[in-house]
Amino acid sequence: MLASSVEIGQLLTIIIMAIALGLDAFSLGIGIGMKGIRLVDILKISIVIGIFHVLMPLMGMFMGHYVSSLLGDVATAAGGCLLILLGSHMVYSSIRGGETESFDHRTIWGLTIFALSVSIDSFSVGVSLGMFATDIVLTVLVFGAFGGLLSIAGLLVGRRVSGWVGEYGEAFGGLILLAFGIKFLL
């Protein structure tokens, strides 16, 4: 009886952590979705984010306690810098009009940068989890599932909202990315 309640408590903790990490993907997905996005791209982005939400904590768990004190703040700062750069570029290209090419979620580079920016905090969480005896497979699969599902939800919400804000959608999306990037750095 005690063992099953410990397992249930551990599963609930993993789910809560997965939701917290997936909320970044949700919030930032709103920003990307506001640019206008096709359903196929939503599915592709969400799958890649789900994969990154599996790989990043897995790599962090393997790093374990050896570097946890060093990388916690560095990983968050790197993610914040990436978001500030992406958000700034989106706002700039929106203001400049058609003269500059915006962040393109359809390219491998753009998709990788976006997925990395919403998954980098999963790495530092994985480093922390690497110090504890946890079910690695269950943990990373739950993280991946919630990361993918919440990014789908955020991208769909952003897509819906983009119709309301019209041509300013990309600028608003960039401002959302900027705000989260600054939040990560503070």
Rank of each mutant, 00 (worst) to 15 (best):
A179Q: 01
S119F: 03
I120R: 01
L129I: 06
S119I: 02
L185Y: 01
F123P: 02
Y168A: 13
S128H: 13
V125M: 14
G166Y: 08
F132G: 08
S119Y: 04
F180R: 00
G174I: 02
G130W: 06
L177Q: 00
L175K: 02
S128T: 06
L138N: 09
G181R: 03
L175E: 05
L175S: 08
G148A: 07
V140P: 08
S162E: 07
A115I: 00
A153I: 06
L116M: 12
F143H: 05
I176F: 01
G154H: 03
L150R: 04
L177T: 04
F123D: 14
Y168F: 12
D135F: 05
V157T: 08
S124V: 01
L178D: 01
E167M: 04
A179T: 07
L150F: 14
L149H: 04
A115F: 03
G181T: 05
E170S: 05
F184A: 12
G158Y: 04
F123R: 05
F146I: 04
G166M: 04
I120F: 15
L178C: 05
L155T: 06
L149V: 08
V137T: 10
L141M: 15
A145L: 13
G169V: 02
G147L: 07
L185E: 08
S117W: 01
V142P: 01
F123M: 15
V165R: 01
G174E: 10
G163F: 12
I182W: 08
F172Q: 04
F184H: 13
V127D: 12
L156Q: 12
V118L: 11
L185P: 04
D135E: 10
S122Q: 12
I152C: 09
L149T: 07
G163V: 00
L116P: 03
V137R: 07
Y168N: 15
A153G: 07
A179D: 09
G181V: 02
L129F: 08
V161L: 15
G166I: 02
G154C: 05
F123S: 11
E167G: 11
A133R: 13
L138F: 13
K183W: 15
V161T: 07
L141T: 14
F132S: 13
W164P: 03
V157D: 09
I120P: 06
E167S: 13
E167F: 00
E167I: 00
D121E: 11
A153R: 01
A153F: 10
F143A: 10
D121M: 08
T134N: 11
V125L: 12
W164S: 12
F172G: 11
G163R: 05
S122D: 15
F172T: 11
R160W: 15
G144A: 09
Y168P: 01
L149F: 13
R160H: 15
G163K: 03
G181A: 07
T139Y: 08
S119K: 06
A179L: 11
V125R: 04
F172D: 14
L149R: 00
G126P: 06
I152E: 10
R159S: 12
V125A: 15
S124W: 06
G181D: 10
V165K: 00
G158N: 02
L185C: 08
G166W: 02
E167P: 01
G169Q: 00
T139V: 11
L116Y: 08
A133C: 08
L155Q: 07
R159K: 15
F123I: 09
G181Q: 12
W164K: 15
A145Q: 06
